[in-house]
């Protein structure tokens, strides 16, 4: 078997007396979707931020494609974030420039990596708007005129335009109503399959994890308490906390 795309070992992170990560280890292989589930405050988002280099852990190692992410310095991590990686924030306002047109938002990553042809940038923007089911005629509108679901789709388009290999998603469906959530999950699933993306997705929505993820990590109080193939973890939970989590899902 090939090597993992991203591999983390012994991650420790504390906020004062609160333990956010306690000797966490994670692997993600190319093209794989890994969901991190758990209740609020269990360390899910901290783990995502540490893996993506947005936050430094107290100790531990993160290897991406053979490179030491924590040791490469901020310039290297930023380069990765512009090229090989993407980050989809829970709140689109954190991931979009609200005063810049939708086309400009999509084009930013292209321009940051050296695209200097206005026509081509616009072409790519129109193409990506269509792929995330936004009417390309709205390319010149600012995202603040978009609905919440559209903003989230725009954020995904902006992230994927440079064809990253690994995308971090922090509760991408949070704050959206159920039907919009369903459409967004559908879209993410299709794009991930089309592009062969590796995705690390944080969610507290067990149904979303089942729909998208190949593998699930269950976190509680900074510890990965259970890990495995999605269907196995959700259908046959071993750890008492996972059993509680799965049993708490509301059936419609």
């Amino acid at each position: 078997m090939s090597l993992p795309l991203l591999s983390a070992r012994d991650l420790d992170l504390r906020f004062g007396r609160v333990v956010a990560l306690d000797r966490v280890a994670v692997d993600i292989w190319p093209g794989e979707v890994v969901a991190i589930v758990g209740e609020s405050g269990s360390g899910k988002t901290s783990l995502l931020r540490v893996l993506s280099g947005l936050m430094l852990p107290d100790s531990g190692r993160v290897l991406y494609d053979g490179q030491d992410v924590l040791g490469m310095g901020e310039a290297g991590r930023r380069r990765l974030m512009r090229t090989d990686w993407g980050f989809v924030h829970q709140n689109p306002r954190d991931g979009l420039r609200m005063a810049v047109s939708a086309g400009g938002n999509i084009g930013e990553r292209l321009m940051a990596t050296g695209a200097r042809h206005y026509g081509n940038i616009r072409g790519a923007a129109a193409d990506w708007l269509a792929r995330v089911e936004i009417d390309p005629a709205r390319m010149d509108d600012p995202p603040r005129n978009f609905s919440g679901g559209m903003q989230q789709r725009l954020q995904i388009a902006r992230t994927l335009v440079t064809h990253p290999r690994l995308v971090f998603m922090d509760e991408p469906t949070g704050g959206l109503d159920v039907s919009v959530q369903a459409k967004l999950l559908d879209l993410i699933r299709r794009l991930v399959a089309d592009l062969g993306l590796a995705v690390m997705i944080v969610t507290h929505d067990i149904a979303a994890a089942r729909l998208l993820a190949h593998r699930v990590l269950v976190m509680r109080e900074g510890v990965v308490v259970e890990e495995g193939i999605t269907d196995r973890v959700l259908d046959d939970p071993q750890h008492p906390y996972t059993q509680l989590l799965v049993a708490s899902v509301l059936a419609a």
């Binding site: 930023r78 512009r82 420039r97 810049v100 047109s101 086309g103 400009g104 084009g107 930013e108 990553r109 321009m111 940051a112 990596t113 200097r116 206005y118 940038i121 010149d140």
Partner: peptide, 14 residues
């Protein structure tokens, strides 16, 4: 990291 400046010029043309 000057992609942002080009975004401004992009918006101008748009």
């Amino acid at each position: 990291d000057y992609g942002l400046m080009h975004v401004k010029l992009y918006e101008d043309i748009t």
